[in-house]
Design a protein around this nucleic acid. Structure first.
Lengths: 189, 189
DNA sequence: AATCATATAGACCGATCGGTTTAGAATAGC
DNA sequence: GCTATTCTAAACCGATCGGTCTATATGATT
């Protein structure tokens, strides 16, 4: 019996890609084992709680990435540097639109109910952190909040339309438009 | 054996709501029969091809609604009246954000592969029809295309964020913002 | 080298999946 | 009012579902 060693972090990343492709309900244990090359034994060793635990850890893992790479910088760093970093992180994470937002996808069907607080927490913190940075950069509170919301809406909408049309260009030009729109408000203030 | 009579159109609408709630993979035949009160016999009478045929007919049905209520007016009617009608139709159809876009949701997982051309066709025609109306209203071709794309992105992003945060207000204020942004470009031109 | 904890492979389980079939009730045409 | 057709109900089917379990291989500890 040959044995391949995996780290749990690898398992989380591999299973995440399957959920990203197939969705929570669409990702069956057999499709997960087939795509990740992890046996059921390995999967249930890492995730005794099965699919639900896999998804929960994946969401936590994504959230943690955004917290360190994006939310905390927005909350703590110099706002113009932090927003610049946000655009880079967004483009990198979503691979120029070829990768969907798993947390957003989960929000659209009943998977949302299982992970409602994680989903809400992620988007709430993103918007709040961004609004905070914009406010610290001198934009009025209400306008900062609205701009932050518009920005996240635009990113999510662009990810969806990219997949729907199979057009990679959409994400890049949407990000560029949102970035310029934000830059104008930052300068104008 | 009591018998309840359904029209096929009713069946399409009932099953559509189940797909909307649970997603394509999440909607099992048993959950469909339970929620719609249609027996398997009835469902397979109306849709001999099973789930896939149900979903295909639902998508066609949604598409047809948008074609008559939104796309054709945008393509043929006076552009300002047609865009005004689009905002009303959008708000009505998505029930102020409480209803998701099933076609968009399908685009996010592998369900997309089954219905790729229907999904692409729907979004492509929406953007093209809207861009055409904007051009006829005097906006330059490139700007009209970009504005149409931005608008659809904003609508879809708002639908997603509404579900993710459970906040009904998002959709309404996003629609209002997009409408005003469009109005400015229509006036400015 | 022997021991032990950890990790992997895959057979196996009951439940549920999508789908088929059979039987019977309601309606339409005559 | 009879018959043919349409539609509904639910038992039933093999396949697949998520999940459990056993056996075994590996790496760390000694």
């Amino acid at each position: 019996m040959t044995r391949t060693i995996f780290e749990k972090a690898d398992a989380v990343a591999l299973v995440a890609e399957v959920f990203r492709d197939l969705g929570y309900e669409g990702a069956s244990m057999s499709s997960i084992t087939a795509r990740t090359k992890l046996s059921k034994g390995s999967l249930y060793h890492f995730f005794p709680g099965g699919k639900e635990e896999m998804a929960a850890e994946i969401l936590a893992n994504i959230d943690a990435w955004f917290v360190t790479q994006m939310f905390r910088p927005l909350e703590e760093d110099e706002p113009r540097a932090a927003t610049a970093r946000m655009w880079e992180a967004t483009n990198a994470y979503f691979r120029s639109g070829r990768r969907i937002c798993l947390i957003g996808a989960f929000a659209l069907d009943e998977t949302r109910d299982r992970f409602a607080s994680a989903i809400r927490g992620y988007f709430h913190r993103w918007i709040k952190a961004l609004a905070g940075a914009l406010r610290r950069a001198g934009i009025a509170a209400a306008e900062a909040q609205a701009l932050a919301e518009e920005t996240v809406i635009g990113i999510q909408g662009a990810l969806m339309l990219t997949r729907a049309l199979g057009d990679d260009g959409i994400f890049g030009r949407t990000l560029e438009r949102l970035r310029e729109q934000m830059a104008e408000k930052l300068e104008g203030k």
